[in-house]
Design a protein around this nucleic acid. Structure first.
Lengths: 206, 206
DNA sequence: AATGTTAATGACCGACCAGTCAGTCACAAT
DNA sequence: ATTGTGACTGACTGGTCGGTCATTAACATT
């Protein structure tokens, strides 16, 4: 039954398969509860093979969470570059991007993983702060400052606390991965209502 | 050295000591990484003794997280009861209460625990949604509706998404327990700026 | 003082699992 | 066909830890 034949692979491809399997396992069971054998089985290989590609469980985990994040980076700071884009539109795009690329994909589990396992892996937390949070806040700071000078913000003071923009995104992640089963949250509505609260209504800007 | 003598105790007190020790251990290392022996040692007793008070590790954990939350409940819905209290003030008090009773105490670790271990313990998640989140949202819904009819809200539509009010609180928990070491977040400022954004400025109300 | 009662102890058991490594097999080179 | 290479395998090891229980100590009763 399901006789698994030995099969050589391109190392890159094998690596990717292991990472994909590891992602699935870690996502649904957490770091501690995931067994290396589970990962191997999911990747369709033997346990020992995993160790040909990653030194140990922790390395597999950290490489995984670091690797998945990087691709998103490019998209983010593209938003601040073009000064012609109205700040409100840019932040709206930020939410849309977040929704489409994270919240509604398997990547949302990655974020939960970082929230959950972060304290156990300071290196991962530090990496995320440096590469994602810090850069994201930088972009938001620019956008909010621009919005403030244009008179687009109902409360210009929030330009000093760009974390506020992240708050609904964080909430949506936590809600959908914890409470969605008990009570639905309309994230689109959440983001829309929040944007409408931050920015003065249409026609209010000069 | 430190010869530990046998010592009988009032069962209630012993229980409380074990729960306190368990809270400390689970908070700082998570469920999986905490050993029952750690808990026992921290409580100053032998491992077997823990099992005289709790059937197993999981029961200890769930009882712990359920038990600590309950006391906060009373304070919360006191805020909605009195109609004379202006909604803005009530929500401001909500943040103050949250800051003083959760964010700046050891209880903040409890919240992180639920975020982190929640998916592993559906019973706990369900309990929290039912007893805390759901009730809290109910109160917020009332307060926001009241504020909307008084014309206090810059964007009345948020009365339909009370989760928005929770978002900054959630962010503050996650930030302080994950990123505070790398970048400070002034939570008072966060809450103040957010309140100022939600509500029309002084004198704007009727 | 002797006896009974019960909380407390910690050595022990067995399940579990990260990581290893001697051996195997697919494929390439000759 | 034969041989060499190294990716792959999975039984095994060493250690860990949740949970048990025979024993012991503290206290109560007589």
């Amino acid at each position: 039954m399901a006789e698994r034949k030995r099969e050589k692979r391109d190392p890159q491809q094998r690596r990717a398969e292991i990472l994909a399997a590891a992602f699935a396992c870690f996502s649904e069971r957490g770091f501690a509860a995931t067994r290396m054998e589970d990962v191997a089985a999911r990747a369709g290989i033997a346990k020992g093979t995993v160790y040909l590609h990653f030194p140990d469980k922790e390395a597999l985990f950290t490489e995984l969470v670091s690797g998945i994040a990087t691709p998103i980076l490019g998209q983010i700071d593209g938003l601040a570059a073009n000064e012609a884009i109205p700040p409100r539109f840019a932040i709206s795009m930020f939410y849309t991007l977040f929704k489409r690329e994270v919240l509604e994909t398997e990547r949302r589990h990655l974020l939960r993983l970082i929230l959950a396992e972060g304290p156990m892996f300071p290196a991962v937390t530090e990496f995320y702060h440096r590469e994602i949070i810090s850069k994201g806040l930088g972009v938001l700071r620019i956008l909010l400052a621009r919005a403030a000078t244009r008179g687009d913000l109902r409360n210009p003071a929030i330009a000093e606390v760009p974390q506020i923009v992240i708050a609904p995104a964080l909430l949506s992640i936590v809600w959908t991965t914890l409470f969605e089963a008990y009570e639905h949250l309309d994230t689109q509505n959440l983001f829309d209502a929040f944007l409408e609260t931050l920015f003065v209504p249409e026609g209010g800007a000069k």
